[in-house]
Simulated assay, not measured.
Amino acid sequence: MPADLEFAGFFVILCLFGGVLALIDIRHGIIPDWLNLSVAGLGLARAVTVGGSVAGIEAAGSGAAIGLIFWLLRRLYFEWRKIQGLGLGDVKFLAAAGIWIGVAGLPILLLIAALTALAAAAIMQLTGRAMTRRTSLPFGPFLTIGLLLALVIQQIIGAI
């Protein structure tokens, strides 16, 4: 199977998971564990399919390292501000996303997620919704957009 077709197959399924994730996070403010596990499992399947078992182990290691780093950042932020700035579902999603994009893709994922979240907050403010420092905004949909675009960017750069 050609690499582009293989990528497209995994990408379409990931888009479906991302759509479900966005809807659940917007409506309920959570990212279910089963969904994070599905994203992680699909990423591992892709890594093994594309690069073999060693690639799968490396991808799992990247995901675990990213998850640990963001879990520690979450804890530190809570100790400092006494409020949760990042949900545990978001941390788990970042770990699952790390399986897909590795540590090298994380900065672009975070940049895209932050910029799209800021754009959404600006639009909400401009349309009359009061936005304060305490306004909560589900971050899962923006992390999903970041993951999908980071994957596309990696695919384009890898294809050149």
Rank of each mutant, 00 (worst) to 15 (best):
D4K: 12
L5N: 14
L5D: 08
E6W: 13
A8T: 02
G9L: 03
V12S: 01
L14C: 00
L14Q: 02
C15S: 08
C15M: 02
L16S: 04
F17K: 01
G18R: 04
G19P: 07
G19F: 02
G19R: 01
A22E: 09
D25H: 12
I26M: 12
I26V: 14
I31W: 11
P32E: 10
D33N: 10
D33H: 12
W34P: 04
L35T: 00
L35Q: 09
N36Q: 05
N36T: 04
N36H: 03
N36R: 06
G41I: 07
G41P: 11
G41M: 09
L42V: 05
G43W: 00
G43F: 06
L44Y: 00
A45F: 04
R46F: 10
V48R: 05
T49S: 15
T49R: 14
T49V: 12
G51T: 10
G52I: 10
G52N: 02
S53K: 08
V54Y: 15
I57Q: 15
E58S: 09
E58I: 14
E58L: 09
A59H: 06
A59R: 02
A59Q: 05
G61Q: 06
G63A: 10
A64P: 14
A65E: 10
A65N: 10
I66H: 08
I66P: 09
F70H: 08
F70T: 12
R74I: 05
L76Q: 12
Y77K: 13
Y77M: 07
Y77G: 10
W80R: 15
R81T: 13
K82M: 14
Q84V: 13
Q84R: 13
Q84T: 12
G85F: 11
L86M: 13
L86S: 03
G89K: 13
K92Q: 14
K92T: 11
L94S: 08
L94T: 06
A95N: 02
A95F: 07
A95C: 04
A96E: 11
A96L: 04
A96R: 08
G98H: 02
G98L: 09
I99P: 07
I99D: 08
I101D: 00
I101N: 05
G102E: 00
V103F: 07
G105P: 03
L106E: 10
P107E: 06
I108M: 09
L110F: 10
L110N: 06
L111P: 10
I112A: 08
I112R: 13
A113E: 07
A114Q: 08
A117S: 12
A117G: 11
L118S: 07
A119H: 06
A120K: 04
A121G: 01
A122W: 01
I123R: 11
M124K: 03
L126S: 07
G128D: 03
G128Y: 06
G128Q: 09
R129H: 15
R129F: 12
A130F: 11
A130N: 14
A130G: 12
A130P: 12
M131N: 11
R133M: 09
S136W: 00
L137V: 02
P138L: 02
F139P: 09
G140H: 06
P141E: 02
I145F: 05
G146I: 01
L147S: 02
L147D: 00
L149D: 00
L149P: 05
L151Q: 06
V152P: 06
Q155A: 13
I157C: 07
I160Y: 13
I160K: 14
